[in-house]
């Protein structure tokens, strides 16, 4: 029979190693969680890009259809949008927010045009586009909410102790929310 006798020093060393290992594994666990959540945030942001592009395309088509009825108004609305060719790769979240609000202004502008030219309501292509635009708006809102939900999750970890230590070590900062400017959307006025 083999008996192991360990001295006090050895026991202390084993405990210290065990504690260090626990801390290391915990650190790796939190770090992985943060990285995974960061990926989710990025994925959700690209979802916003897709939804914004889709909305932009739909509104552009709608403006083209509107041109036959209200050329001047349509051209004015076209100028509201900064990026005529879609979202540039280097665009920041702030830029996208601005783009989002511009698209909302265009959508509201089209509604004003429809009120002014009721004939548009009889145009089936226009009506189908209107449905498609409403749908893209829903998709965009969903993408925005998903992004913000993921941001909330990651930010909660980043600001919560002791996970905040890991976040600091890997230089991970709080992520910005994608916010729609509700007040701005409501106050929009068009003078053609």
């Amino acid at each position: 029979m083999i008996t192991l006798s360990l001295g006090t020093g050895a026991i202390i060393a084993i405990v210290i190693v065990a504690l260090v290992l626990i801390v290391v594994f915990w650190f790796i666990g939190v770090m992985n969680q943060l990285r995974q959540l960061e990926l989710k945030v990025q994925e959700a942001e690209s979802g916003i890009d897709v939804a914004l592009t889709k909305r932009f395309d739909m509104l552009t088509k709608m403006l083209q259809t509107t041109k036959g009825y209200a050329k001047h108004e349509s051209e004015t609305l076209e100028k509201v949008v900064k990026w005529r060719a879609g979202i540039p790769k280097e665009a920041t979240l702030k830029d996208k927010e601005e783009f989002f609000n511009q698209l909302n202004q265009v959508a509201q502008g089209i509604n004003v045009v429809v009120e002014k030219y009721p004939d548009l309501k009889a145009n089936t292509v226009f009506m189908e586009l209107q449905t498609a635009v409403a749908n893209t708006e829903e998709h965009l809102q969903a993408a925005r909410r998903l992004y913000n939900a993921n941001v909330t999750r990651i930010n909660t970890i980043i600001v919560t102790f002791p996970q905040s230590i890991v976040a600091k070590q890997i230089h991970m900062d709080k992520k910005p929310y994608f916010e729609a400017e509700e007040a701005k959307r409501e106050d929009v006025k068009f003078e053609f």
Binding site: E138, Q141, A142, A143, R145, L146, A149
Partner: peptide, 10 residues
């Protein structure tokens, strides 16, 4: 799909 939850559950 996460996005589906947010799309349906407004």
């Amino acid at each position: 799909e996460d996005i589906t939850a947010f799309y349906i559950l407004t």
